[in-house]
Design a protein around this nucleic acid. Structure first.
Lengths: 128, 128
DNA sequence: TTGACTCTACGAAGCGCTTCGTATTAACAT
DNA sequence: ATGTTAATACGAAGCGCTTCGTAGAGTCAA
């Protein structure tokens, strides 16, 4: 009963999470300064978003200092996993294989990338 | 200048597109009857959604008959490609490899699936 | 022609996301 | 104490998505 609903970060939320994953725990100002160059956005807008993300449980907030410090609640990997599974259900009928196909098609992955994927396949077959 | 913006179908729109891909060109009633068992939804709701999808260009409408016939404008594959690319940009920093990893992790794919992916990798390396 | 059905069209409510302006509170220097 | 700076809190507007009720128009049979 602890997990009520699968939370899907919106685009804006994902942009903020990306900053938190890259920088680690950060204040609103730090996130804002990271985000602003990419897309102009007001300081209070970022603040509001991060407040809402706190309510949603996407981030946790340390209020011990005057400038609150925010931390992503889930790791980047866990979030990626959720997003992939979600897309899998919505648009691929649950077929991971077809999603992999689409992900690789057109994208020329480097030789080392391909090798990495091959290794993963090997491991999956080994632990069958 | 023909493609203005990358269109991302919403959940509801994707549900409708899935029906159109499965059944082929369909009327609102046909889509509604396919959708209703899964999740209860009003007829006019589906109608409205499909009207909006027409405006967006997600589907095309044949009005020659009294009951309009709708067809998905993009193939399932093209749409899947777009969605994957979008997720790639938003949450994976563009790394298809990492997305593939997350898609396969935890999902035990069948042996034939794995073989299929291996073959794709082979082809990609061949056409290097 | 009237009635029963079956469509589409229209409009509006409710909610969530995004945006920001304004108010308030805290910290610090003078 | 007072003014400046910097932070959070609050509220509201605008837009898109989702939902549906109601109105209006087409079709067919009696």
């Amino acid at each position: 009963m602890s997990e009520k609903k699968l939370l899907r970060p919106t685009d804006s939320e994902l942009a903020i999470l990306n900053v938190l994953w890259k920088r680690g725990s950060s204040t609103v100002r730090e996130v804002h300064q990271d985000l602003r160059p990419v897309s102009p956005i007001g300081y209070t807008t970022v603040l509001k978003l991060m407040q809402i993300m706190t309510e949603k449980g996407l981030v946790v907030r340390d209020e011990s200092e005057r400038a609150h410090v925010y931390t992503a609640r889930l790791t980047e990997q866990k979030t990626q996993r959720q997003l992939v599974n979600d897309l899998l259900d919505r648009a691929f009928g649950g077929s991971a294989t077809r999603l992999v196909m689409q992900a690789l098609a057109g994208k020329r992955a480097s030789a080392s990338d391909l090798a990495e994927i091959r290794q993963l396949l090997d491991e999956m077959e080994a632990t069958k």
